[in-house]
Nucleic acid binder design. Sequence first.
DNA 1: TCTGAAATGGAATGTCTGCCTCATTTTTTA
DNA 2: TAAAAAATGAGGCAGACATTCCATTTCAGA
Lengths: 281, 281
Amino acid sequence: MDERVPRDFETLRATILDRRETLPKRIAQIAAYALDNPDDIAFGTAASIAASAGVQPSTLIRFAQQLGFDGFTSLQQVFRERLRERNSSYDERLQALRAKADAGAGHRAIFDGFVAAASTSLNDISRTLDEAHLEDAISLLAKAETIYVLAKRRSYPVASYIAYALGKLKIRNQLIESAAGLNAEMVAFATPADAVIAISFSPYAPATIEEARTISEQGVPIVAITDSSFSPLAQFASVWFEVAEADFAGFRSLSATMALAMALTVGVGEKRRSTSRKRKG
Amino acid sequence: MDERVPRDFETLRATILDRRETLPKRIAQIAAYALDNPDDIAFGTAASIAASAGVQPSTLIRFAQQLGFDGFTSLQQVFRERLRERNSSYDERLQALRAKADAGAGHRAIFDGFVAAASTSLNDISRTLDEAHLEDAISLLAKAETIYVLAKRRSYPVASYIAYALGKLKIRNQLIESAAGLNAEMVAFATPADAVIAISFSPYAPATIEEARTISEQGVPIVAITDSSFSPLAQFASVWFEVAEADFAGFRSLSATMALAMALTVGVGEKRRSTSRKRKG
DNA sequence: TCTGAAATGGAATGTCTGCCTCATTTTTTA
DNA sequence: TAAAAAATGAGGCAGACATTCCATTTCAGA
């Protein structure tokens, strides 16, 4: 192997596309197959890949050598590395991006950081979400006459999207925002036949906590989305979800919370539809 | 292999964690290693993995058999499948999840769908974002005296998060919401020394378009986030970004828009800091 | 402490691997 | 068209592979 061997997948890909025209027929056949089915190259054996691509194993090795590798195995490493890297812990990537952004690597690095933070958060919640809690929360909310949505500051965008989605689904809801200063009155309307979605992360907005306390004392069931079991919200909640959002440049991602919020909202919509069908049927 | 063999990685993971306590010492050692280094299991050979984990190859096979597989190779398939799936086009996964949710596969499927939609959107924007546009937009916004943030309905949550973040960064800003009905007056205050971030997706909220038109006629530069070059927002904008958000169950993800919005916000913060440093120095 | 069972280590085994070689076919060049 | 060069196919080989087997150690219960 000389020094010009493509070591990463993108370079390899470019090299192949570049030489495509000049490659012999069978070699080109493999080249096309390799770019179309990179996963097969990564995991298959020379024999199995050759069979899938409709060539002899020896041709596969010649293809690798033509690209400067010393054999099929070296070529395969590049395809494996690609899967590894794509899949590599987002946490590590996030660390690297943070360092890069700190070093002043430009605005693209900041953007990449936010994307990575969002991806990390989605990954995390996807692994940790408790399905039973999800079912419980949806059942609880589906029974409510009015769903109150409670969140301030950083969590407020999520609340506003929930309110928007509930409205679209024609589910009666009330967003409790701080602007108008009428929160106490709004909260007082809630009865045990209603339900609340409350969202708050550390540092917990005192108003959110206070309103949650008041409303829970009125016997209104609460579904909480928060960030740890020590959260003051957790103690008032009938069901609560722990969502760990990764942060970047001092701002936490909302992507995981958003995904959960939308699942709750649409889940309630589905549940209501299927329940009313049953009643009618 | 009987029918209870874990076929997918998550089930396998759960099974291992479940049995962790009851496993023999060496087997447990491998179990821990496998969950910590899944990539090594996927790519390594029985000998190399055993060496890394500090056990004999035969133990590795016993581990696989204890889980119900007929050998190490079968176990390895699960770890390989995991990499394949993770890497497989999110679009395909999303399609599958939509079908699943339509078939009434429960609320977990809905949640997975929103997570996949968010991931797809993040992937897309990561590939397509124009770095030059990002720089232009940040320069433009960094020069503004006041940043007006303009968005309704579905885009409003993004606007509210931008406003929150700008406030945290002590950047003067004004969120133009529909609630108070004072939009016309607010818009009238904007001068060419200010700037606007406008966000709107199809179907474009008429109010957003109208306000954007008015404000651009006043000579105020606009940074737009929208979903196609046919968007009416694009024609008023000095810089505009095309963001394609995947949708699920009728609701589009906001994750890509959020990431871009935060990059703009924090980018402006950074730029202001470095500019003021230069002025002082 | 003794005894049987379970767990472990390590070498032996037969299969399958990648790669080389050489005969044959196809393409290029004069 | 003939000769040379390149490309291809297919069989064979050495080595690496997963797996099995058996001797030894560790553990549990009486």
